[in-house]
Design a protein around this nucleic acid. Sequence first.
DNA 1: TATAATTCGGACAAAAAACTCTTTAAGGAG
DNA 2: CTCCTTAAAGAGTTTTTTGTCCGAATTATA
Lengths: 151, 151
Amino acid sequence: MVLSRTSQYAIQALIYIATQAPGEPVLNRDIAERLNVPAAYLAKILQNLCKHGLLDSFRGRLGGFCLREGMHKSTLMHVLQLTEGPDFTKNCILGLKECSDETACPMHFKWKPVKNKIISMLNFMTLDELAKAVLTGKYRLADLPASAIPS
Amino acid sequence: MVLSRTSQYAIQALIYIATQAPGEPVLNRDIAERLNVPAAYLAKILQNLCKHGLLDSFRGRLGGFCLREGMHKSTLMHVLQLTEGPDFTKNCILGLKECSDETACPMHFKWKPVKNKIISMLNFMTLDELAKAVLTGKYRLADLPASAIPS
DNA sequence: TATAATTCGGACAAAAAACTCTTTAAGGAG
DNA sequence: CTCCTTAAAGAGTTTTTTGTCCGAATTATA
Ligand code: FES
Ligand code: FES
């Protein structure tokens, strides 16, 4: 029912970066504070996303992370294939090696349509759209960030 | 996208027990062999299901585990609430503390209908029905069991 | 009663996931 | 060139999950 923490952090961070001005590097420290997640751990995740071409990173002053050209259109499926492994959609819900109509477990034919729904949903949601949603102010990226002073 | 191994083992074992003659205790060793899972670990899981009233256990000769009276009608939701915790359906997919329309993350309104679909599916599937499906021979409980002939 | 078969319970071990620390390299500004 | 800021890299730690081991309790049967 859930994603790994790593995936959750990755998605949150990417959406946050997508809400910022393109081409302006965002500091890992700022992302971590905004999302209220451990900075050193987040850094590892972002580094990994860099290696896989989703982000660009810059060191030194004015450094930070920003979405690589064109990656605003990346889908959550793309992101999750990096964080959860390339065939995270190919697993049987009961843990069998293979999930297919030919080797179906007793849940398979009920689960399959739901799974397909999830897959198409993930293929449909892009970072850009999610960022736009956040920018409307109607949606939250993190719960009660340290700087949520209602003054 | 996946369940914990513990949940997978629990569901597999319960379905297997449900396929066996009611009232006849099934040996942990036999279940483990049939499902090809570690016996000592499975025993822990079954003990836990006993404590929560889903199974009855008997020690000594002719001992083993069998479904408690009426529990053939248990749903997967019931099982998973024991193995994954009582509010495993209440979590936000992005990891926020609360999942609700009022505190929605950017995925919430897309995810919610899918989640509801999963929940109703889990509420609908009973051990009895899954066991029947397995007994037709069309579905697998485990991949390549040591002995591919149940009975 | 003695014995073998089984679960029970707790401690233990290994592996994976989550998280931290430290050092190094790179880049911008004075 | 020097200083400061930042990410990169890698080793190390902690926590959770998964899995093992063993001795004690229980029960049928001979
Ligand atoms: S075989 Fe189990 S979900 Fe497809
Ligand atoms: S708030 Fe994130 S899924 Fe409901």
